[in-house]
Lab assay of single mutants.
Amino acid sequence: VAMCDYCKLQKIIKETVRFSGVDKPFCSEVCKFLSA
């Protein structure tokens, strides 16, 4: 469980994407796409 980078809620992380050398955790595909 970690904080989703988009919705800022403590959730089970399903996706982690690396932006500019920094790992960004996301709880769902939706949050990942909305943050892009």
Rank of each mutant, 00 (worst) to 15 (best):
L34G: 09
V17I: 09
C7E: 02
C4G: 02
D5L: 12
L34W: 07
K32D: 00
Q10L: 08
F19R: 11
K24L: 00
E29Y: 06
K11C: 13
R18E: 10
Y6N: 07
F19Q: 13
E15G: 07
R18H: 10
S35H: 07
C31Y: 10
V30K: 15
K32T: 10
A2F: 12
L34M: 15
E15C: 12
I12V: 11
K11T: 10
C27H: 02
V17P: 06
I12S: 12
D23L: 09
L34I: 10
E15A: 08
I13F: 09
K14A: 05
I12K: 13
E29R: 08
C31T: 00
C7R: 06
K24R: 09
D23F: 03
V17K: 09
P25K: 14
C7D: 01
K24M: 13
I12G: 12
C7G: 03
E29M: 11
L34Q: 15
A36C: 00
L9C: 14
F19S: 14
F19D: 15
V22L: 05
I13P: 13
L34K: 12
V30P: 01
A2V: 05
G21C: 01
A2K: 11
S20D: 15
F33D: 15
K32C: 12
S35W: 08
F33A: 14
L34P: 03
S28H: 06
M3T: 13
Y6T: 10
L34T: 08
V30C: 15
D23N: 08
C4Q: 03
A2C: 01
E15T: 10
M3L: 02
S28Y: 02
C31A: 02
V30R: 13
A2Q: 11
I12C: 15
V22I: 13
E29D: 15
K14C: 02
M3A: 10
L9M: 15
C4E: 02
C31S: 00
D23Y: 01
G21M: 10
D5S: 13
Y6R: 09
L34F: 15
S35L: 00
R18P: 11
G21T: 07
V1A: 04
T16G: 08
C7K: 04
T16L: 03
P25S: 11
C27V: 00
Y6F: 13
L9S: 15
S35M: 02
F19M: 15
K32F: 03
G21Q: 07
M3V: 08
D5M: 08
F26E: 06
I13L: 01
S35D: 08
Y6D: 02
K11G: 08
S20W: 01
V22K: 06
C31E: 00
I12R: 11
F33P: 10
K8L: 01
K24C: 02
R18I: 08
S20H: 15
L34H: 11
Q10A: 04
M3H: 05
F19C: 15
D5R: 05
F33Y: 01
M3Q: 08
V17F: 03
R18N: 13
A36Q: 13
V17N: 01
K32S: 01
G21D: 11
F19G: 10
R18K: 10
D23K: 02
G21R: 03
I13S: 13
R18W: 04
L34S: 10
V22Y: 13
F33W: 13
K14H: 08
S20M: 14
E29N: 14
P25E: 03
C7L: 00
R18T: 11
E15M: 15
C4M: 08
C7Y: 05
V1M: 14
K24W: 00
Q10R: 11
D5Q: 08
I13G: 11
K14W: 08
F26R: 03
C4V: 06
R18Y: 04
D5T: 09
C7S: 04
S28W: 00
S20R: 10
V17T: 12
C31V: 01
L9E: 15
Y6P: 01
I13A: 12
K24E: 11
F33C: 15
E29H: 09
S35G: 11
S20V: 03
I12A: 15
T16P: 05
S28V: 00
F26D: 05
F19T: 13
D5H: 12
I12N: 12
G21L: 05
G21W: 04
I12T: 11
C31W: 01
D5I: 06
S28Q: 03
S28E: 02
A2W: 03
V22M: 15
C4K: 12
R18C: 09
C31Q: 00
K24A: 06
F33V: 12
C31D: 03
K11V: 08
I13T: 11
K32N: 00
S35K: 12
G21A: 04
E15V: 09
C4W: 11
A2G: 08
K24S: 02
F33S: 14
C7V: 00
L9V: 08
S28G: 03
C7W: 00
S20N: 15
G21S: 03
K11M: 07
Q10F: 15
C31G: 02
K14P: 12
V22G: 10
A2H: 03
S28R: 00
E29P: 09
K14M: 14
K14E: 04
K8P: 02
S35C: 09
F19H: 08
E29Q: 07
C7Q: 11
F26W: 02
C27S: 03
Q10T: 12
V1K: 14
P25G: 11
F19V: 13
Q10E: 14
F33K: 14
P25R: 10
D23M: 10
C7T: 03
K32V: 02
F33I: 10
V1N: 12
S20Y: 12
I13K: 08
S20L: 07
I13C: 03
S28A: 02
F33H: 09
M3W: 00
E29G: 06
C4A: 04
D23R: 00
V22C: 04
S20C: 09
E29L: 00
V17Q: 04
T16Y: 12
L34R: 12
K32A: 10
K8N: 07
E29F: 00
I13D: 05
A2E: 08
R18L: 06
E15D: 10
F33M: 15
S35V: 00
A36W: 06
M3E: 09
E29T: 11
D5K: 06
V17C: 04
D23H: 10
K24V: 14
A36V: 06
A36E: 09
C27L: 00
A2Y: 00
E29K: 11
P25A: 03
C27Q: 05
K8H: 04
M3P: 05
K8G: 07
K11P: 08
K24G: 11
C7M: 02
G21E: 03
V22R: 11
K8Y: 04
